[in-house]
Nucleic acid binder design. Structure first.
Length: 571
RNA sequence: UGGGGCGUCGGCAAGCGGUAAGCCAGCGGGUUUUGGUCCCGUUAUCCGGGGGUUCGAAUCCUCCCGCCCCAGCCA
């Protein structure tokens, strides 16, 4: 990879953005008061039922980041309690993504399924204390008994079974004596509790399904509310950080830990999940996009998944910087995609070499340049950082420039090439437009005729005369054809999730591939994932779909475009 | 209509009784062999609204308004 190495991942932070967030404030306070002996232990607990996306990145940066800042630990724990949805494919990719983002769980890789035996014992303990019972009601009946938001629920007729009967039934549930869905284990709390989560929540259900790790050992599986708090306690977590929608569940988190002989009682803190405009960040919607073929897979560069962003050319640093800058708070918010794009540009600007590519070529013929002659120009790979070195760029009589860099009848503020006007070909020569050749049938310009000034070799005029524009170019006979994949927002509206079918707002132009794109020969066989700046166009990276001599480039993000701004402002 | 949360610049977000940080976006200017980068300047007399407490409030009290979450044997 030609890219510059990143600075120390853990140390890499933007020198701006918001100050410490409320979670870090709590941690700081707890350390000051020696609450856990100064210890900080967090965890990132994904369910292996999908690929990680930017929302997870926020959580990863928070959990790993906050731990790292205090010499603490952060476990990677798979919350794998629902075998019907989970698979090893996901546990694999999640590990890859966390590592790629630059975080290390230092061997503390855990699975909730590893705790199944202990969880079972805790359930037995609850039954023995008269705090849990086996219920024979169906799912529908349980729902009917739950009551409403404003009205209390009703007790199940099975609520007052004896401890012995409950124990007996629960063992037989475990032993597979009853069919799926026929019985559940429920906590005995309060069917009139104002918090619906506390109306005798289900703790265990029967699922005669093979689990990706425990196989057929179990046919009863614990639910989230029972599993998560105990997993945290078993791991000695000090700060259990999750998103706002789990706030109602905190009462149950605490209830379970208070009523069972748990080794400790971690505290749960909730923060607002990330929303990004012009995309969706919900596993359900993302999986729909993949399954219905609206994108080419989980790693489609248009996807807000970690794999998608990676393939698009985003760096781990840019994503981490982004997460630092958006902050962590308790209010719902939607972050502007422009901030994410700013973060990649910032990172790539410093780390990636500059090269020439022409997306929409038009031929330039330099009339006074000898036919058949080629000279090799040595061009810096990074004009602001000599350590990048230089690369050879062939120059000859026929070149390609960007079609948009020429106008026959230019408006006031256009100062690129036009008839009679002189511009600079970067690192090469000044050229002056002498005329154009058009297709007689369509009127389209097929060739721009120019003359060059040999005295301006390198790009400066000895007589000191100036030009207003500098153009990138590629020698026609040396040009390497490429597939350039240009991406736009996945959706046409800022909030595609807002009511109705989000798929109705899919952007038909989210991927465009201009025919005829070419690059300089230096780019013919660069490694996949290497990042480049095509001068004046944007940041690109080599896609894994590349074939030898036929590279495929993804445009990560375009450069800021002052001219586009002027055009837009001018109507 | 129950319970739990949240409302500070166009978008994020600090602030925690002493008189509104920062970032992105926008706008204006400088430098420039990328209309890029970089640099400088500019952008809330005001903190959802009304009352109140106080010498003093975005910060405390109170009422109102708005938004989010909860009725999975999902997480």
């Amino acid at each position: 990879m030609a890219d510059k190495p990143a600075p120390n991942p853990a140390a890499a932070k933007p020198n701006d953005g918001p100050g410490p967030d409320f979670v870090r404030a709590v941690i700081k306070e707890d350390i000051a008061t020696n609450k856990h002996g100064g210890r900080v232990a967090t965890r990132f607990p994904p369910e292996p039922n999908g690929y990680l996306h930017m929302g997870h990145a926020k959580s990863i940066c928070l959990n790993f980041g906050a731990a790292l800042e205090h010499n603490g630990t952060c476990n990677l724990r798979f919350d794998d309690t629902n075998p019907v949805k989970e698979s090893t494919e996901y546990v694999q990719s999640i590990q890859e993504d966390v590592r790629w983002l630059g975080f290390d769980w230092q061997g503390r890789l855990y699975y909730a399924s590893d705790y199944f035996p202990k969880l079972f014992d805790f359930a037995v303990e609850l039954i023995q204390k008269g705090l849990a019972y086996v219920d024979d009601l169906s799912a529908d009946e349980i729902r009917e008994h739950r009551g409403t938001l404003t009205g209390p629920g009703k007790n199940s007729p099975y609520r007052d079974r004896s401890v012995e009967e409950n124990l007996n039934l629960f063992m037989r549930m475990r032993d597979g004596e009853f069919p799926d869905g026929s019985r559940v284990l429920r906590a005995k709390i309060d069917m009139a509790h104002p918090n619906l989560v506390m109306r005798d929540p289900t703790l265990y259900r029967i699922r005669k399904v093979r689990h990706h790790r425990t196989g057929d050992t179990w046919c009863i599986y614990p639910l989230y509310d029972f599993t998560h708090c105990l997993s945290d306690a078993l791991e000695g977590i000090t700060h259990s950080i999750c998103t706002l929608e789990f706030e109602n569940n905190r009462a149950l988190y605490d209830w379970v830990l208070d009523n069972v002989s748990a080794p400790c009682h971690p505290r749960q803190y909730e923060f607002a999940r990330l929303n990004l405009n012009y995309t969706v960040l919900s596993k359900r919607k993302l999986i729909t996009l993949v399954q219905e073929g609206h994108v080419r897979g989980w790693d489609d560069p248009r996807m807000p998944t970690i794999k998608g962003l990676r393939r698009r050319g985003y760096t781990p640093e840019s994503i981490r910087f982004f997460c630092e800058r958006i902050g962590v708070a308790r209010r719902d918010s939607t972050v502007d995609m422009a901030l994410l794009e700013f973060c990649v540009r910032e990172d790539l600007n410093a780390r990636v070499p500059r090269v020439f590519g022409v997306l929409n070529p038009v031929k330039v013929v330099i009339e006074n340049y000898p036919e058949g002659q080629t000279e090799t120009i040595t061009a810096p790979l990074h004009p602001e950082d000599a350590s990048f070195g230089a690369r050879p760029v062939p120059f000859s009589r026929e070149l390609y420039i960007e079609r948009e860099d020429f106008m026959e009848d230019p408006p006031k503020k256009f100062y690129r090439l036009a008839p009679g006007r002189e511009v600079r070909l970067r690192y090469a020569y000044f050229i002056t437009c002498a005329g154009v050749v058009k297709d007689p049938a369509t009127g389209e310009i097929t060739e721009i005729r120019c003359v060059y000034d040999p005295a301006t070799k390198g790009g400066d005029a000895p007589d000191g005369r100036k030009v207003k524009a500098t153009l990138h170019w590629v020698s026609a006979s040396h040009a390497v054809p490429v597939e350039a994949r240009l991406y736009g927002p996945l959706f046409t509206v800022p909030d595609p999730g807002e009511g109705g079918d989000f798929r109705a707002h899919l952007n038909p132009k989210s991927l465009e591939i201009p025919p005829g794109a070419v690059v300089e020969p230096w780019l013919a066989d660069q490694p996949a994932e290497s990042g480049w700046q095509f001068e004046r166009l944007g940041y690109f990276c080599v896609d894994k779909d590349s074939a030898p001599g036929r590279p495929v480039f993804n445009r990560t993000v375009a450069l800021k475009d002052e001219w586009a701004r002027i055009q837009k402002a001018g109507g």
